[in-house]
Design a binder for these strands. Sequence first.
DNA 1: CCTAGACTCAAACGCCTGTTTGAAACGGAT
DNA 2: ATCCGTTTCAAACAGGCGTTTGAGTCTAGG
Lengths: 206, 206
Amino acid sequence: MQGNPQFSTKQRILGAAEALFAEHGFAGASLRQVTAAASVNLAAVNYHFGSKDNLIEEVFRRRLDELSRRRLERLAETSAAGQTTLESVLDAFISPALELSLDRKGGSVFMRVLARAFAEHNGHLRKFLSENYGYVLKDFAAAFAQLLPQLDREELYWRLDIAVGALTYAMADFGMIQRRTGESEREHREQMARHLIHFTAAGLRA
Amino acid sequence: MQGNPQFSTKQRILGAAEALFAEHGFAGASLRQVTAAASVNLAAVNYHFGSKDNLIEEVFRRRLDELSRRRLERLAETSAAGQTTLESVLDAFISPALELSLDRKGGSVFMRVLARAFAEHNGHLRKFLSENYGYVLKDFAAAFAQLLPQLDREELYWRLDIAVGALTYAMADFGMIQRRTGESEREHREQMARHLIHFTAAGLRA
DNA sequence: CCTAGACTCAAACGCCTGTTTGAAACGGAT
DNA sequence: ATCCGTTTCAAACAGGCGTTTGAGTCTAGG
C-alpha cells in the first residue's frame, strides 16, 4: 500500500495513516510519518483531506461504510430466513469484520484502529462514530432484544455493553499476525470467530 | 488531587498525569498540560521521574502493585477456602479493581488508563506491563485451567483471551461516571461487576 | 498550441513538544 | 548563622508538530 505507485495519492495516504494509527495511535502518529510512509508530499494531506482530523474520519469512513452495509445485509438475511438465533446474529456482526481482516489490502490493521477509537471514551471521534454508524449497533441491539425477551431493558443493555467490549477487543486481534504453527492465517481467524460467537452467545444467554 | 497542596509534588503529578492520560492518551497528553493541572513547575516531571516514559510507568506502578497484590490475595483466599468456582475466581480478579475504582482519590480513572494500555498492542508499554505484572494473569490462568479441565490448552487460551478483553473494556467503564437515575455510583458499579462475572463465567463454561 | 484546473512540491509559518540548565529558595543539621 | 542536600523555578534548547503558501508540474478540453 505504502509507496505503491499503482494507488492514488489519497489511497496511499489512507493506507499509511491506517497502519500508523494502529501502531502509534492518532496523536502518536504524525502527518510527517504518514506522508513519508506513503511516499507523498507532506502538504498532500491538507490538500486532499483538509486536516488531520478529517483524515482520521476518512480512515474510518473508507472501511466502515462497507463494513456496516455488509453487517446489516447479513442481519437482514438471517431475519429473512426466519431462523435467527443468537449465533446467527453474532455471525452477522463478526463475519464481515473477519472477511475485511482477511482482505489482502491491509484491512486487518483496521480492526486495531477501531479498538483505539473505542479506548477514546470521550472526544469528538466517538461522537463522529456514534453519529454516523450508531444505527448499526442499534439495529443489532434490536435483534438481540427480540432473541432475549426474558431480559428487561436494563439487563439487556448491561450484557450488550459487555459483549461489544469483548467483540471489539477480540477483533483487534484479527489485526495481529501471530498465527499458530501449522495453521494458516485464515484458519486461525476463522477459529477465533467461532470461539468468539460461542463465548458471547453463552454470555448473553446466561 | 490536582493542585491540592496537601499532596506532594510527586503525587500531584501522578494524579494529574493519570487523569490526562485517561482523557487524551499517552501521546495526546503533554507534560505542560500535566504540570499545569498539578500546579507544578514543568521541570518537576524530569526531576522526579527522569522522563515522560518513566512517568507513564510510574502511573501504572502506583496502582498495579497494590491491585495485583489484592487480586492474588483474593485468589489465594478462595483457593484456601477449598470451594473455588469460576465465579469466585472472577470475583477475585474483578472486586479489587472495583474497590480501587470506588476510591475517592480518583482511582476510577485508572481503569481507563489501563484500557488505553491494552490498545497499545505493541510498544514498550505492553512489554513493561507483561514483564512486571504478567505473573498475575498467569496465576489466574492456572486457576481457570483447574476449573475447566474439559478444555484443552488451546481452547482455554482462546477463551481467556476473550475474557480478558471483555473484562478490560468493561472495567474501563468503572471510570465513566454516568450513574443511572436513583442509584448511587457504588450500586451502579457493583451491579456492573455482578453482570460481568455472570457473563464471563457463562462464556468460559459454554 | 494554449489555457484552466487539478495536483505536487520545497519551504516556511507559528506553535508546541520533551528535556536541560543554572540560579534561586527552601529546611534541617551543625 | 552557616552550611548542604533537596526541591523549585523561569528560561532556553533543539526539534517536531499541523498547517499554509506560492511557485511549479501535469494533463485534459478548446
